[in-house]
Design a binder for these strands. Structure first.
Lengths: 166, 166
DNA sequence: TTGAAAACATTACAACTCTAAATAATTGTT
DNA sequence: AACAATTATTTAGAGTTGTAATGTTTTCAA
């Protein structure tokens, strides 16, 4: 039986998902934070005091999951919760001092190896990979997008808004 | 603040992982099987009576996880276990009749939308996506593979087999 | 042959993840 | 003002996943 292109997609995806998970656990040992925890922390850092729901869409996790993660972060005093005054339904999360500190000492949420190798690729290669990933993500979420004409492949690749100007 | 290419990778990845998870749950409602369960079932179908460890590398999951999944499959009589006679350490898993039936009625382990849209892409587009995914997977696993500069798309998959006895 | 090391599988445990239901607060309608 | 509908978050419950520890069986060497 031969492997189709689609099979290859599936295989790669599983490997990627697994690698991501393994790295998360490794991270947890080294820094004391799992990848999703770090992700949420960074998101709070970036967005300022935001609602749980905003965080949830930002990191692509359900509200319940974010609540769960914040529970843990709060119990370690990396994050603090307080209800908004304008709208007492919403809960704002902010970083504590140790939360900020923790972020600064933490590595990337992606494998270091990956970062290193990825950044050493040619810009066009990076773009190709990014646009492929985006296409896959898009094709998977395509419930609403029924006939979305977007994504003209040619344009997608040229879309290099980042010029590695280091 | 600007999003780098690497950020884009991370974002897409999270979306893909989430989409995969959501689909798995949807599948579970429709067919009564989660994606990894289906995956394991198909793997047994394809490989014949194999050991747990072979299955585990085939579907990119840990042994413990496969054991766990097989527990569930066995309790539903989709799979049967029996110890090998040649080597009584290993456990073989085989499909029952209802297991085979289940497979035939199950959809792809990937979103139907995805399959549909992916298969409607031009061959070169498919190849580009596959090779991008493979590169990502490889860059993430790159512990052993130290300086492998090139990925010949065809052969890339076999590389992952090797699991170093350092 | 016997004992140590290795290989295979399972168990125990902890984290993550989701959906659905429950709780709390706001908004809109009458 | 009171009640319904909506919005935001949390809780409850179940499945997936991995590591570490455990129990078996095999292999190998003295």
């Amino acid at each position: 039986m031969e492997t189709t292109q689609e099979d290859q997609v599936l295989i790669s995806l599983r490997q990627i998902i697994r690698a991501t998970d393994l790295y998360s656990r490794q991270l947890s040992k080294q820094v004391g934070l799992t990848a999703p925890q770090l992700l949420v922390l960074q998101s709070i850092h970036r967005l300022g005091a935001t609602s749980i729901s905003k965080l949830s869409t930002d990191v692509s996790l359900s509200q319940a999951t974010v609540t769960n993660i914040i529970d843990r972060l709060e119990s370690r005093a990396l994050v603090r919760r307080h209800r908004s005054n304008e709208d007492r339904r919403v809960v704002h999360a902010t970083l504590t001092d140790s939360g900020v500190e923790k972020i600064s000492e933490a590595p990337t949420p992606l494998q270091d190896v990956f970062s290193k190798r990825f950044s050493s690729l040619e810009p066009w290669e990076q773009s190709m990979i990014v646009s492929s990933l985006q296409r896959v993500a898009n094709m998977m979420n395509a419930e609403d997008i029924d006939a979305s004409p977007v994504l003209h492949v040619g344009g997608a690749i040229d879309q290099v808004h980042e010029n590695s100007a280091s």
